Simulated scan of single mutants.
Amino acid sequence: MVGSTAALLTGCGGGGGGGSAQQLAGDSGSTSPLAAYLGTWQSACDNHDRQLLVIALKSDGSGSLELTPTGETYFKADCTGPVVATDGMSAKITGKPDGTADMPIKLAENAAATNLRVDKVTSSVPAYTFQRSGATVQYVLRDGKQQWCVNVDNGESCMWDEGMLPAPSIPGGLSLHGNDLYSVVLDPKKGVYVLDVHYVKK
């Protein structure tokens, strides 16, 4: 199977690095409207893969977020046992607040839309590369493309090395319901916001 590096670059963004323990835990004196999102979040297991997202406030006092997505590949398809590969990005992503809006979002493929209050965030990042690491990860040339591959219990998991990628600016947003965090992105073809990733608090 070939993993998509694009899964790491969600609408709420992400990048290398993180924040201090105080930033991650949240500062009771913070005035950022996005402070409720601070912490570490994880997605459901998806055939060996799970996405992690660490959200911190930027240290420049701007009220913007710094988001760090990480992909974990497990040896077993149900995401138990050892993590055999970790995916990340070479640059930090900034999430700039862009107001709030009520939006109808489909939270499952065949479900009716649910009205969510979304904190809109525009994510930006300088030019970046994806990276994959792990003790058994191999960097190989397959079908004319450089890939990182690692053995899993039913074969191997590979991720293309796409080289240096241009700096994007992505309209998206975050919506919090209890321990459930929904990231949404603007679908440029339809002109509406759609569900990107569903996370739960780790």
Rank of each mutant, 00 (worst) to 15 (best):
G13F: 11
G13L: 06
G14Y: 07
G15F: 12
G16I: 05
G18R: 02
S20G: 15
A21D: 13
Q23Y: 08
Q23M: 11
A25Y: 00
G26C: 12
D27S: 09
S28A: 14
T31F: 02
S32H: 14
S32E: 13
P33H: 05
L34M: 09
A35D: 14
A35N: 15
A36C: 01
L38T: 08
G39R: 10
G39C: 02
T40K: 12
S43F: 00
C45V: 07
C45A: 10
C45K: 13
D46A: 15
D49C: 00
Q51V: 03
L52Y: 13
V54R: 15
V54N: 15
I55A: 14
A56T: 15
A56F: 11
L57K: 07
K58S: 06
D60W: 04
D60A: 02
G61S: 03
S62I: 01
T68K: 09
T68E: 13
E72M: 11
T73G: 06
T73S: 14
T73H: 14
A77S: 15
A77F: 07
G81S: 09
P82E: 13
A85C: 05
T86E: 10
D87G: 05
G88Y: 04
G88P: 06
M89H: 03
M89G: 00
M89I: 14
M89Y: 03
A91T: 12
K92A: 15
G95N: 12
G95M: 10
G95S: 12
K96C: 01
K96N: 11
P97I: 08
G99E: 08
P104A: 07
P104K: 05
I105H: 09
I105A: 06
A108K: 15
E109Q: 14
N110H: 05
A111H: 06
A111L: 06
A113S: 13
A113K: 11
L116A: 11
V121I: 10
V121D: 03
S123F: 04
Y128M: 08
Q131L: 04
R132N: 02
S133F: 02
T136E: 14
V137T: 11
L141D: 14
L141Y: 08
R142A: 14
